[in-house]
Write a protein that binds this DNA or RNA. Structure first.
Length: 108
DNA sequence: AGTTTGACTGGAG
DNA sequence: CCTCCAGCCAAAC
């Protein structure tokens, strides 16, 4: 089953745009929610071209280890400014910051 | 049309 | 915790 790139891109944007302030998602999670589990790299590709768009909080997307993009140091500053919990080694504390359906309970 | 690339991932050392 | 490696797959070259 081939991938619907146009729809995939649209879904990725919608998902990322829905991430609450101070919360993060992983590339794999976005790909999964968009309906294509093994396309985490494609998510990264799309967001790379979306950095210019201030409408999209693409800085709230990190890799599965909670590590920000090595080639984009500004991302860490943006996250810290939102109060995202970082561990001493420089990676996000995913246990606290990752956005999932359970996180919806905290927003109440 | 074939090869290389990468804002990924999970596991191994 | 760190780096390295193989698997991954559409996009870019």
């Amino acid at each position: 089953m081939p991938i619907d790139t146009a729809r995939f891109r649209q879904d990725v944007y919608s998902i990322v745009a829905a991430v609450p302030y101070g919360r993060v998602l992983t590339y794999g999670q976005v790909a999964l929610l968009a309906g294509y589990p093994n396309h985490s790299r494609l998510v990264g590709r799309l967001l790379c071209g979306a950095t210019a768009s201030a409408q999209l909080p693409c800085h709230r997307v990190v890799n599965a280890q909670g590590r920000p993009a090595p080639v984009w140091q500004e991302q860490r500053l943006l996250l810290e400014a939102e109060g995202v919990p970082f561990k001493p080694n420089g990676s996000v504390d995913m246990h606290l910051a990752q956005w999932n359906y359970l996180s919806l309970l905290d927003l109440a």
